[in-house]
Amino acid sequence: METLTAAYEKAPRRPGVLRDRLLRFDLLMALLTALFFSLILLVLLSLVGAASWREVIAHVGSSRGFDCILLSLKTSFAVVVLTLLLGFPAAYILALKQFRGKAFLDTLLDLPIIMPPLVTGLCLLLLLNQANPVGRLLQEWGVRLLFTPGGIILAQFFVAAPFFIKTVRESIAAIPSNLLAASATLNASDFYTFRRVVLPLCRKGACAGMAMTWARALGEFGATAMVAGSIPGRTETMTIAIYMEAMSGGLGNSISTALVLVLFSFTLLFVLKLQAGRQYEY
């Protein structure tokens, strides 16, 4: 904004009028920005204001509160690991390779993002049901996903992984192709190039994608509830506990869990943002 103002100041005609207009424009933009952040803060403060720290500590220390926090952390961490394993190859292929059906895959990737989580949960429920061949096959192999923490991981992964893949794909696509070509002419294999050029240069995107995936997995509700239900101590995640407690009159516990969730998500996003490192200029 400052540069733009400086450029206008250098303009020969009616500099005073233009400067005034720009200042007014800056002021308007700043006010609207302040309004936006105030709204976010207002929402958060309503939660913080309603919480009693004594209650929060007591609830976190209780068996039900501790179990749901631990379960959410475990499953969301598993989702992040799974996403790193499967998401990087998908992002790499979508960013760098040209093939038939790429547009279809691209759209498919958007689907879990735009699909209501309840519908996603319903689809997973139908897939894992005994009536479905996949569900039957898993049952034969002794893999039980419905109403288990495994089901939670699957539901969260399905909903959250596309955020990582899309962010990393953009980061990889932004790497100039001549860097990859240079690597190839320097005898580097595709794997070596991936390890030494692609990974370091998409670190910022990967950190942002990881943060979004983790936060999305932590906050997942609809799909998880459909696939895993709400068995306290077994499949009750933080979000499900928040809903169940609020609906059954335990608003204090609901607020306590929500506060832990918000604090953890914020810390996670903030730390990963700091870890992301610099953005290289190409």
Binding site: L179, A182, S183, A184, T185, L186, A188, S189, P200, Y282
Partner: peptide, 29 residues
């Protein structure tokens, strides 16, 4: 493939790896 041709290439915009030092760029190949 380019890896097996023993051909060096100096690109128009140099294509230096921005996250590697001058030494590491030279050592890369």
């Amino acid at each position: 493939g380019p890896q097996r041709r023993k051909v060096g290439y100096v690109f128009q915009d140099y294509a230096l790896f921005p996250h590697l030092s001058a030494f590491e760029n030279v050592a890369y190949g």
